[in-house]
């Protein structure tokens, strides 16, 4: 597949309060149709970085961002956050299907929330293809009108992925997508992530190093807000250049 950097992060810093950067001067390029993992000890800024990538951090006041993130050479901070978020989807740590909507409506919620009206047949098609691509269709096709919150945790998370995919995003951000799930559900989500990378570029934050080695083509190691190392995953784990990375992957601090 023709690979090129779909996302470029340039000199990105995020400050929660003046002079207290949570993320410091990050430079990185993310290749399309790959899975990139962001690892590091808690509080290292990995979630903050991820949340800046679709500007969801802007919900909260007093957060200051400097630098650029380019998606297909366009700076996302110069565009409407609405458009940016439609192109860069997100899946959260805890599955969060909309409790007021059925499974069917949940898959279509991206369209509803963008005020896009669809024909019934198009709707059915979108619901079916996206539920199929997350392997949920056979499990829920009889109960599409039930509330999404009745599903198991793993099913809910796959529904949330289907919901994000339905908008055909270019990039899908995942913030510790399996940390609230049991091992079996985790395995399914991981298999799904590997299948999906043919369609969409994935950036996943994880605190689980094994998960990073299983999933990611390349990995970023962050520490105290800085990007310490960004290498192909195999190299990062087997041949880290930096002492801190070595310490982290050998479990010397967590």
């Amino acid at each position: 597949m023709n690979q090129y950097p779909i996302m470029k992060i340039k000199n990105l810093s995020v400050e929660y309060a003046k002079g207290k950067p949570a993320v410091k001067n990050i430079n990185a390029e993310i290749m399309n149709h790959t899975v990139t993992a962001i690892i590091g000890p808690s509080g290292c800024g990995k979630s903050t970085l991820l949340r800046a990538m679709n500007r969801i951090h802007e919900l909260y006041d007093n957060i200051n961002v400097t630098g650029e993130i380019l998606l297909d050479e366009e700076n996302i901070f110069r565009k409407s956050p609405i458009i940016v978020r439609r192109k860069i989807g997100m899946v959260f740590q805890r599955p969060n299907p909309f409790p007021n909507m059925s499974i069917y409506e949940n898959v279509l919620s991206g369209y509803t929330l963008n005020g896009i009206k669809l024909k019934k047949s198009t709707k059915n098609e979108i619901v079916q293809t996206n539920l199929e691509s997350v392997g949920l269709w056979d499990e829920v096709k009889e109960s599409l009108q039930k509330k999404g919150t009745f599903l198991s945790g793993g099913q809910q998370q796959r529904l949330c992925i289907a919901r994000a995919l339905a908008l055909r995003p270019q990039v899908l951000l995942m913030d510790e997508p399996t940390s609230a799930l049991d091992p079996i559900a985790t395995k399914k989500i991981e298999e799904l992530i590997l299948q999906l990378k043919n369609r969409v570029t994935i950036v996943v934050v994880t605190h689980n190093m094994q998960q990073a080695t299983r999933l990611a083509d390349s990995s970023m190691f962050m520490y105290l807000g800085e990007l310490i190392e960004y290498l192909p995953t195999y190299e990062l784990f087997n041949n880290p250049k930096n002492k801190k990375t070595q310490d982290y992957i050998s479990g010397n601090f967590s």
Partner: peptide
Amino acid sequence: NLREAGLTLGGTNFRV
């Protein structure tokens, strides 16, 4: 994260 989920799907504040 409910509202964040709505916003990541590109909904406006009002629609979410």
